[in-house]
Computed example of a mutant assay.
Amino acid sequence: MSQSSKNHKKPRTTNQERRRSPRRLTLSNEQRERFDLLQKEIGFMFENKKLLIQAFTHSSYVNEHRIYTFQDNERLEFLGDAVLELAISQFLYKKFKSMSEGDMTKLRASIVCEPSLAKFAQELNFGQLVLLGKGEEITGGRLRPALLADIFESFIGALYLDQGMEAVYEFLTKTIYPKVDEGAFSHMMDFKSQLQELIQRDNLGQIQYVIVQERGPAHNREFVSEVQLNDASLGVGTGRSKKEAEQHAAQQALVKLSQKSPS
């Protein structure tokens, strides 16, 4: 062998250097089983399982295990935020045809805010699957609202990339849209005022609210309100107070009137 060949020999990689170099993410059998169970529970089987796992991989886990930095969920979170906003915007646009741009913006904000997204993630037990570094685990990161909200967004991003927008709509139809239908975010909106404006604008007649039922013990009372248009039932809602029940009834009335109006 020539002297020049000897001089260009590749230096050997030491064990210490191997430990320092980035590695691919690997899961235990138990962790893989958890992700398999999640897919069965939500009704979506990912074609690219790496996307699903990445959605639940926190940066603290990547840093601690010296995994490639692009394998955490931050890029998916960025994408999921935009996808979720579009999906919610379309749903509100189609559902509340008489709602103003300003009111739709406020309602959407209450749905995609951190507390709401964290609650959705908790209901789906997303926190149990998050891959966390030990430090983040010890300080309660698995239950931290900001972390859970980010996980929900990164999951939406992963689902969109793996199966497209229709899958996102289908997933939200099972998880978020029913909550909007039930009036879970009506505290952010004044549906009674919206209904009154619509009735007056179109000269539809007179509306009134009637408490048709009170149920439950005194310390846990529930009221059922019916909003009537020209003495005909237009919507029914329930709530812990009469005002809350009326708001829910008005929300249902708005939906009913929107369905009758031309697209």
Score class of each variant (00 low, 15 high):
2 S>V: 04
5 S>Y: 07
5 S>F: 07
6 K>R: 14
7 N>I: 12
10 K>F: 00
11 P>F: 03
14 T>R: 12
14 T>E: 03
18 R>S: 08
19 R>P: 00
20 R>N: 10
21 S>R: 15
23 R>N: 10
23 R>E: 02
23 R>W: 00
24 R>N: 13
26 T>Q: 14
30 E>P: 00
31 Q>T: 08
31 Q>V: 03
36 D>V: 10
37 L>S: 11
38 L>F: 15
39 Q>R: 09
41 E>Y: 11
46 F>H: 05
46 F>M: 10
46 F>E: 04
48 N>W: 01
49 K>F: 11
51 L>T: 07
56 F>P: 04
57 T>Y: 04
59 S>Y: 06
59 S>Q: 12
60 S>W: 02
60 S>T: 14
64 E>W: 04
67 I>N: 04
70 F>L: 09
71 Q>M: 13
71 Q>D: 09
73 N>S: 15
74 E>C: 09
74 E>W: 05
77 E>R: 15
78 F>S: 13
79 L>E: 09
80 G>A: 07
81 D>K: 15
83 V>T: 08
86 L>G: 00
86 L>S: 09
86 L>R: 15
86 L>E: 13
87 A>I: 05
92 L>H: 06
92 L>Y: 07
94 K>R: 14
95 K>R: 15
96 F>L: 07
99 M>G: 01
99 M>H: 03
102 G>W: 05
106 K>P: 00
107 L>P: 00
108 R>M: 13
108 R>S: 06
111 I>H: 07
112 V>Q: 05
117 L>Y: 02
118 A>V: 04
121 A>P: 03
125 N>M: 11
134 K>W: 04
135 G>E: 13
140 G>P: 05
140 G>Y: 06
141 G>D: 02
143 L>G: 08
149 A>K: 03
150 D>R: 15
150 D>G: 15
151 I>T: 15
152 F>M: 12
156 I>L: 01
157 G>A: 05
159 L>Y: 01
160 Y>A: 09
160 Y>R: 06
161 L>W: 00
161 L>G: 02
163 Q>R: 14
163 Q>H: 14
165 M>P: 02
166 E>I: 09
166 E>W: 02
166 E>M: 11
168 V>P: 07
172 L>F: 06
173 T>E: 14
173 T>P: 00
175 T>N: 13
175 T>F: 04
181 D>G: 02
181 D>L: 13
182 E>P: 00
186 S>A: 15
187 H>E: 12
190 D>E: 11
194 Q>M: 15
197 E>M: 12
198 L>I: 11
199 I>R: 10
202 D>S: 11
203 N>Y: 04
208 Q>H: 12
211 I>E: 03
218 A>E: 13
219 H>V: 06
220 N>D: 14
224 V>S: 10
225 S>I: 01
225 S>H: 01
233 S>I: 10
234 L>N: 03
235 G>N: 04
236 V>K: 13
238 T>I: 10
255 V>G: 01
257 L>P: 00
257 L>N: 01
257 L>K: 10
258 S>Y: 06
258 S>K: 09
259 Q>F: 08
259 Q>G: 14
261 S>A: 15
261 S>I: 11
261 S>D: 07
262 P>R: 08
263 S>T: 13
